[in-house]
């Protein structure tokens, strides 16, 4: 068979593929621990979600924590669930392909951090950075007689 005919044939007939190997070959997913990964990820995510929900609805349940502390714990629970899902649902693990994706994710998260924290920081301290009003400038200029 000529190559281009073989290629056309493969597109037309959509040949069978080794499904056992496919996800490992293309995405570098683990061969044997796939089912364990999904079950573990699901249970851990459920636990983190329910813990966060209980803490948010009953902030004084365990200790009498102040609200900023509760908010920080909730944020950490979200981060923990983020990591759990990355490992068990996205199957980050060993292998060059997973490492490549991991570092792209890390770079994106750095951009996310700069974008979100930078926006909030600048917008919440905007007053201190703004040009004074004309009345304030007038007053300032009157006090500085040399100008």
């Amino acid at each position: 068979m000529k190559p281009y005919i073989a290629k056309f044939h493969s597109r037309l007939g959509q040949p069978e593929v080794d499904t056992q190997q496919y996800f490992e070959n293309v995405a570098g997913w683990p061969q044997s621990r796939l089912s364990i990964a999904y079950v573990t990820g699901f249970i851990l995510s459920l636990l983190f979600t329910l813990a966060a929900f209980t803490l948010a609805t009953h902030p004084a349940l365990i200790f009498s924590l102040s609200l900023p502390v509760v908010a920080a714990i909730l944020g950490m629970l979200a981060l923990a669930q983020f990591v759990v899902q990355l490992f068990f649902f996205f199957h980050f693990g060993r292998g060059a392909a997973a490492r490549e994706r991991f570092w792209i994710l890390m770079f994106t998260l750095a951009l996310v951090g700069i974008l979100v924290s930078g926006s909030i920081w600048i917008m919440y301290t905007l007053d201190a950075r703004m040009m004074p009003s004309p009345a304030q400038m007038e007053q300032y200029m009157n006090s500085q007689t040399g100008i």
Binding site: A52, F53, L67, L74, G75, L77, A78, F82, Q85
Partner: peptide
Amino acid sequence: LDLVWIFLFTLVYLWGIL
């Protein structure tokens, strides 16, 4: 989508309720 929702759940809803 589930990954993004974790942060919607926590940062928007739970922090909003606090």
